[in-house]
C-alpha cells in the first residue's frame, strides 16, 4: 500500500486516484476536526477548500515531513482565517456560565459540547481538539500549530480549567 507521502507525490503529478485515496484515509478525522473547530458551520466548504489547498501546494510538500501534520496545518490555518472573517462568532461565554448556574437550564443544553468548545479562544480550541479528540501527542500538536511544546501544555491547562469552570453544575 502506498504511503501518504508517495500519494501526495502522485497528486503533485495530477493523479486524481491518489487524491481519492488520501481523501478516504483522512476524511473522517479532517471533517471531525473542522466540524468541532467551527461548531458545524461552513464545514463542507472548509473541508473542500482544505483538499484544494493540498492539491495546489502538493508540489511544495517536503517528503521528510508527515503528511497528516501538514494536512492539519492547512486545516488549522483555514479555520483561523474563517474565525477572523466577519461577522464574528456569535458566542457569548457569559451566556454559558449563566445557563450552567441557572437551575432550570441545567442538563444537556448547559453542557452542550459545541458551546463549550466555542467558548474557548481559537488557539485553545485547536489544542483541545487535536490533543484529545485526535489523540495526537504534544509534539505533533506543537508542530501543527507552529508553537513550542510548552505553549501547547499551557494552552491545554488553561483550556481545561476554563471548560471545567463552564461545565461546573
Amino acid at each position: 500500500m502506498a504511503t501518504d507521502e508517495e500519494l501526495i507525490g502522485a497528486v503533485a503529478d495530477g493523479d486524481g486516484r491518489a487524491l481519492e485515496q488520501l481523501c478516504r484515509r483522512y476524511e473522517r478525522g479532517l471533517h471531525q476536526f473542522i466540524f468541532r473547530h467551527t461548531g458545524g458551520r461552513d464545514v463542507d466548504d472548509l473541508y473542500q477548500e482544505t483538499w484544494l489547498r493540498v492539491v495546489r501546494a502538493a508540489g511544495r510538500f517536503d517528503r521528510r515531513r508527515r503528511f497528516s501534520t501538514w494536512l492539519f496545518q492547512i486545516a488549522v490555518n483555514l479555520c483561523r482565517d474563517w474565525h477572523r472573517r466577519p461577522p464574528p462568532e456569535p458566542v457569548d461565554p457569559a451566556g454559558i456560565e449563566d445557563a450552567t448556574r441557572d437551575g432550570t437550564a441545567r442538563g444537556d443544553a448547559a453542557l452542550d459540547a459545541r458551546r463549550l468548545l466555542a467558548a474557548l479562544p481559537e488557539a485553545q480550541r485547536s489544542v483541545v481538539i487535536l490533543r484529545y479528540y485526535h489523540d495526537l501527542d504534544e509534539d505533533a500538536v506543537a508542530e501543527i500549530l507552529g508553537c513550542p511544546r510548552g505553549t501547547v501544555k499551557s494552552r491545554l491547562h488553561h483550556a481545561m480549567a476554563r471548560l471545567a469552570e463552564l461545565a461546573r453544575p
Binding site: 466540524f35 484544494l52 453542557l111 471548560l163
Partner: peptide, 22 residues
C-alpha cells in the same frame, strides 16, 4: 469530568463523499 464527558458526547456527522472534492 463533567466538561470532558460533555465534550465526549459531541456527535459529528459523516464526512461528505470524496466525489465533491475530486
Amino acid at each position: 469530568q463533567a466538561a470532558v464527558r460533555a465534550l465526549a458526547a459531541y456527535a459529528v456527522p459523516a464526512p461528505p463523499s470524496p466525489a465533491g472534492v475530486l
